[in-house]
């Protein structure tokens, strides 16, 4: 792969005696959508959180968009602006409106004026189909709407990469579609995305590559069709079989 936008090599992560990541390599090309699947506790979320240094890797290297994320001289707050992250539990700021959530980092990190930030924030809400909810607080929004506001909060900063950490796992089934719809349109706009999720239908349709992790290591990876229909490893087969049984 030439010039990957995300280049993580030899990532190890220990939590005390627990060895969560055992030398993971992950390279992602620009405009690529990579799906990371694997059983609970396999280290997928930890890997994602190492990419924007929400979690400090014990060893290894992470370069995102040419910035060495683990170099102590790197301005981590500046670098994080370029890496959007969406969480399972949305994590919207409950004391602010939807627009306030989206504009906070625009004003404080990107240095926009209030008016400039609000224009950009409104545009970001428009992209997730929630322009008419700008004045609502998170408590007044459904789970699906909250997650879309969270996506707007990230894309308003015009990130180079978006990380999704189980974005639909906390949603009622009928609300999942609206969030996947927004993710699909993001993909069509050319966003590089790394998604930890078990939305297999979405992975099949939208992903360029599926990465299967187990016990802190990447077991196999490949195009969705290959991984889902014809997995090479026994563990992958067992996992795919288990989630497709439901």
């Amino acid at each position: 792969m030439n010039n990957p936008i995300v280049d993580a090599r030899g990532i190890h992560k220990h939590f005390g005696a627990l060895h969560v990541l055992k030398g993971v390599d992950l390279r992602v090309a620009e405009r690529e959508l990579v799906f990371v699947i694997g059983p609970s506790g396999s280290g997928k979320s930890t890997l994602l959180r190492c990419l924007n240094r929400l979690e400090e890797p014990s060893s290894g290297s992470v370069v995102v968009d040419g910035i060495d994320m683990l170099d102590p001289r790197t301005d981590i707050n500046h670098a994080r602006q370029r890496i959007g992250m969406v969480f399972q539990s949305f994590n919207l700021y409950p004391h602010m409106t939807a627009l306030g959530n989206v504009t906070l980092a625009l004003r404080k990190v990107a240095g926009k004026s209030r008016a400039g930030a609000e224009a950009l924030g409104q545009a970001a809400l428009e992209r997730v189909g929630l322009a008419d909810r700008a004045g609502h607080t998170p408590g007044q929004l459904s789970g699906g709407q909250q997650q879309r506001v969270a996506i707007a909060r990230s894309i308003a900063l015009e990130p180079r990469v978006m990380l999704f950490d189980e974005p639909t796992s906390a949603l009622d089934p009928e609300l999942v579609g609206s969030v996947l719809e927004v993710m699909r349109s993001l993909r069509e706009s050319g966003m590089t995305m790394i998604v930890v999720s078990h939305e297999m239908g979405f992975a099949r349709n939208a992903a360029d590559r599926v990465v299967f992790m187990d016990e802190g290591a990447i077991v196999e990876q490949g195009p969705p069709a290959a991984i889902f229909e014809n997995p090479a490893h026994e563990r992958t087969r067992a996992f795919i079989g288990q989630i497709q049984r439901h």
Binding site: L54, F87, S89, N91, Y93, H95, L104, A105
Partner: peptide, 25 residues
């Protein structure tokens, strides 16, 4: 903790997160 993580992931500093996100709550 998710409030800290969300704010820090958008590039807010520790202090900005404290004053704008955590303290009001």
């Amino acid at each position: 903790k998710g409030q800290w993580e969300a704010a820090r992931s958008t590039g807010l500093t520790f202090l900005q997160t404290l004053t704008d996100v955590v303290l009001p709550q």
